[in-house]
C-alpha cells in the first residue's frame, strides 16, 4: 500500500501509525512490568506471578505418601529439602491425567508456604505491562473465582492469572 484513501502518497506519520497498529497496542515503556510464568492445564492457559515461582522442576521423582488427599501427589527431594507436590489439575477440578513427558513442577511460594505444583507444561516466562492484566470476567467458574487475579492475552490465548498466596493458604485450610 503506497497511497491513502484520497489517492495521495502516504506520509511518514501515516506509515508509522500503520506500523504501530500492526505491532499491537502502544506500551508505555515506563510502565511497571510484571513477570508471569505461563503454563497449561488441560488445554487452558494460566499464569502465576514470577515472584511466586521459585523454580521450575522437571523429571523429579515423586514419593507417594499414604494418608494424603488425591490432589496431593506426594513429596519430592529438592537438593535435600522435602517439598509437597500438588496436582494443580486436581486442585482446580480438571479431570485426572497421568503426568506427561512435558509436565513440570512449579516450586511455588506464598502465604509463608511453599509447595510444588504439577502442571501439564510451562509455555513461557514473560514480562507484561501491568495495564494489560484485566479484571477477571464474570464467566469464570465459581470455584475458580477466589483464586483469579485477572486475565491477560498472550499468543492468542486468554491467560488466567492465579493467586499463589490464596491457593496455598486455601489448600492448607482444606478449602480446596
Amino acid at each position: 500500500m503506497t497511497e491513502n484513501e484520497n489517492g495521495d502518497d502516504l506520509t511518514l506519520d501515516q506509515v508509522l501509525a500503520i506500523r504501530r497498529g500492526a505491532a499491537g497496542p502502544v506500551v508505555n515503556v515506563d510502565e511497571p512490568l510484571v513477570k508471569l510464568v505461563v503454563f497449561v492445564l488441560n488445554g487452558d492457559w494460566f499464569a502465576f506471578h514470577g515472584d511466586r515461582v521459585k523454580e521450575v522442576l522437571s523429571d523429579c521423582p515423586v514419593y507417594f505418601l499414604p494418608g494424603c488427599p488425591p490432589s496431593l501427589e506426594g513429596v519430592i527431594n529438592v537438593r535435600g529439602d522435602i517439598e509437597s507436590v500438588l496436582s494443580l489439575r486436581s486442585v482446580l477440578r480438571y479431570p485426572p491425567a497421568a503426568p506427561a513427558a512435558g509436565s513440570r513442577v512449579l516450586l511455588g511460594q506464598g502465604a509463608d508456604l511453599r509447595s510444588g505444583l504439577r502442571v501439564d507444561s510451562v509455555e513461557e516466562v514473560m514480562d507484561v505491562p501491568q495495564s494489560l492484566i484485566q479484571a477477571p470476567p464474570h464467566t469464570i467458574p465459581d470455584h475458580l473465582r477466589p483464586l483469579v487475579l485477572g486475565i491477560v492475552a498472550f499468543h492468542g490465548h486468554m491467560v488466567t492469572l492465579l493467586d499463589m498466596d490464596r491457593l496455598l493458604a486455601d489448600y492448607r485450610a482444606g478449602a480446596l
Binding site: L65, P66, C68, L72, I82, S84, S115, Y171, R172
Partner: peptide, 22 residues
Amino acid sequence: VRLLPPLVAARTTLPALAAMVV
C-alpha cells in the same frame, strides 16, 4: 530427618506422622 512439608502436615490423615527421612 525432615519436617513434614506444611501442606502435608495440614492435610494428612495420619495424625501420628511426625517426620520423614528420604
